[in-house]
Design a binder for these strands. Structure first.
Lengths: 233, 233
DNA sequence: ATTACTACTCACCGAGTAA
DNA sequence: TTTACTCGGTGAGTAGTAA
């Protein structure tokens, strides 16, 4: 989790706070009548009054009532809420990639090669170092079928991932691999690995995890598996 | 007016749009179930569903319903709304000064010196050039009394204004003056002028306008006058 | 599993008005 | 003038459920 997310209740209060901020109440005490604020908000005077009371009660503003208007100052906690919204939008507008994408595929049994590759020490060491877990010796193979999943899989290539370097041993070359941290079926953390082997085309993805996923999640061939892929910021 | 301001109706729709954007729907088509979105929003599945329908109808999102979720993409018009909110917050958070401040003072009759100064050609020319109007020969004197107004008046010194340069003629020196565009009683455009004469302290402000304000606004000594001062960006 | 319709509840909004 | 109370109507949210 990056930061606590904005909920529906907070959102409602933020509208009045935003309008007050537009009137300069972030940096100074402003005098506004509820009628004037109401006009700026496009609501009735009574509604504006009630909203001010609620913001006051929630501690977002300081409010002093005078015979000809309210003196309003947005407090630090209110400014913090506006900042949270602003930085949230900043991230959304500037982010070149989505924060996460979700794939769904159908589980099938592969040729068992996954276990061989995953257990090569030069790979395994990097998995532990860069992913933070020692992978179970085996991979979960998922077949993608829907147009959406295939498109998402291809877009994934352009997103940044964790690079696992290739190497050579006496007999052959092992290619480099790109990984993405994932959450399988909303429960178990693991990683999606790309291009470990070339003979599967992009309609197949392979998942590794610290535990034996088939048992952990009670999975059988033909089951639909959901994988939430976390894109690095 | 800088740009069209956000209204209460728009604000409600923006919450769902914001949550969709958090899921990456600005840059790609995302698959979300109404249940999943509802959980992110902290509302029921039905409410999330209805919000999606409304956003679709308003043209902010493209929405394709599939048997296992909705494919959602935020359209340009929706992105424009998010951008409007973002840039609005940007301005609020970064602005060193409020966009405007309001003063209220009580009208009184001065010594008639205002007319003399305002009609000096070297001043008058600059007023026409820099304020865009030929000032009526006379000033409206307002006495500030409330703590709020006095504080605001003193803060005004630190805000940027329009500089009217001083000059010398054969006999004496005329000091430079700082002006702020104002709206008097929510109706008439004019300018507040500071330090035209030094023998009024900061509890008095003087207003000039293209017309005779006392007649135009039916003002008499002792009337309360509201002045909205527009701070330059 | 989905989406979204129909009721029903309730909270919110605004008119009237007191202070 | 203000703020903000009461109260009645309505729009928004939810539960149940159909498709």
């Amino acid at each position: 989790m990056s930061s606590s997310t904005i909920n529906a209740q907070t959102w409602k209060g933020l509208f009045t706070l935003y309008k007050l901020a537009e009137l300069g109440a972030c940096s100074r005490t402003v005098k506004v009548s509820t009628e004037y604020l109401a006009q700026k908000m496009g609501v009735s005077q009574q509604t504006a009054s009630r909203h001010l009371i609620q913001l006051d009660e929630s501690g977002w503003i300081k409010r002093i009532i005078t015979p000809d208007g309210c003196l309003i100052r947005i407090l630090d906690s209110g400014i913090a809420e506006l900042k949270k919204l602003h930085s949230g939008l900043q991230i959304i507008m500037e982010a070149p990639y989505p924060p996460s994408v979700t794939l769904e595929g159908v589980l099938f049994t592969g040729l068992g090669e996954g276990a061989y590759y995953v257990t090569r020490d030069r790979y395994r060491g990097q998995f532990m170092e860069k992913l933070g877990f020692d992978p179970y010796p085996g991979t979960l193979n998922l077949k993608l079928t829907s147009e959406y999943d295939l498109k998402t899989r291809s877009e994934l290539e352009t997103y940044p991932g964790i690079e696992i370097e290739g190497f050579k041993d006496e007999s052959r070359t092992f290619g480099s691999v790109k990984c993405y941290p994932v959450i399988i079926n909303n429960k178990v953390k693991g990683a999606l690995i790309c291009a470990l082997r070339s003979h599967y085309n992009s309609s197949v993805v392979e998942i590794i995890a610290p535990s034996f996923l088939r048992r952990r999640l009670q999975l059988k061939d033909g089951n639909k598996v959901k994988v939430e892929i976390l894109i690095l910021p």
